[in-house]
Simulated scan of single mutants.
Amino acid sequence: MQKLSFPTYDFRFKSRENKICIFDEIRKKFVVLLPEEWVRQHVVQYLMLQKGYPKSLINVEKQLTINSIKKRYDVVAFKKDGSIHTLVECKAPNVKITQHTFDQIARYNMKLNADYLMVTNGMEHFYCKMDYEAEKYHFLEHIPDFSR
């Protein structure tokens, strides 16, 4: 897999049915290593190791229903009170981040109401803080560290 613009992390790999799998610490299982999964696993490590998010407050690839359609978000980091701190949308490194990507995470966030949004393809990262009163968002340089 290609080098991403994240720090280098140690991952566990194994081969299963002629496919390379990576261990997901959150789901506690090996999953097929596709380009988007490579990005997702880097995001999880980044949130835990660089930003101090507890593993117990991170969810990966959970289903949600939007207008009777079942969707799956990539990564959610919760606050201690159970509300959502950060919603992350991951794309494969060869997928360009477009307005469509921001529309997708915005649709998910209409249901989830996260404080922060992160969109990444592993090479480019975009961070936003939601302002629900003004009905807009503000771009940030980084996602904030987890507040204890």
Rank of each mutant, 00 (worst) to 15 (best):
L87I: 06
Q41D: 06
N109E: 11
T101N: 10
D145A: 10
V43W: 00
Q45V: 04
I22R: 03
Q104N: 12
G82W: 05
L87K: 02
Q99S: 14
V44N: 01
I97D: 02
M130Y: 07
N94D: 15
K79H: 14
Q104K: 10
F11S: 06
L57Y: 08
D81F: 12
K111Y: 15
N18K: 12
Q104E: 12
E89V: 02
F146N: 05
D10A: 12
T101A: 15
K3I: 12
V44Y: 00
I22L: 08
A106D: 13
V43S: 00
A106K: 09
I22Y: 04
D74H: 00
L87A: 06
V95P: 03
E141M: 08
K3N: 15
L87Q: 04
H85K: 06
L64R: 09
N67D: 15
Y73F: 15
K55V: 09
P54L: 07
L117P: 00
D131C: 07
Y137G: 07
L33E: 07
A77L: 02
E135P: 02
E36A: 06
C90P: 03
H85I: 00
E37T: 05
D74L: 00
M123V: 12
V39P: 01
K129C: 11
P35A: 08
Y53A: 02
P93R: 08
F11G: 03
E133M: 10
D103T: 11
I69Y: 13
V31S: 03
Q99C: 08
T101M: 06
V60P: 01
Y137S: 11
T98R: 11
D115I: 06
I66L: 15
E36R: 05
G122D: 03
E133N: 11
K96E: 15
P144W: 06
H85W: 02
G82C: 10
K80F: 11
D115H: 09
Y127N: 04
S147Y: 14
P35R: 08
R40Q: 05
H125W: 04
I69H: 13
Q50M: 09
N18L: 09
F13R: 03
G52R: 07
Y116T: 01
P54V: 05
C128M: 14
E61Q: 09
K91G: 01
S83E: 12
V31L: 10
T65H: 10
V76R: 00
V31T: 05
L112E: 07
I66H: 12
Y116N: 01
K79P: 02
K96V: 15
Q63V: 10
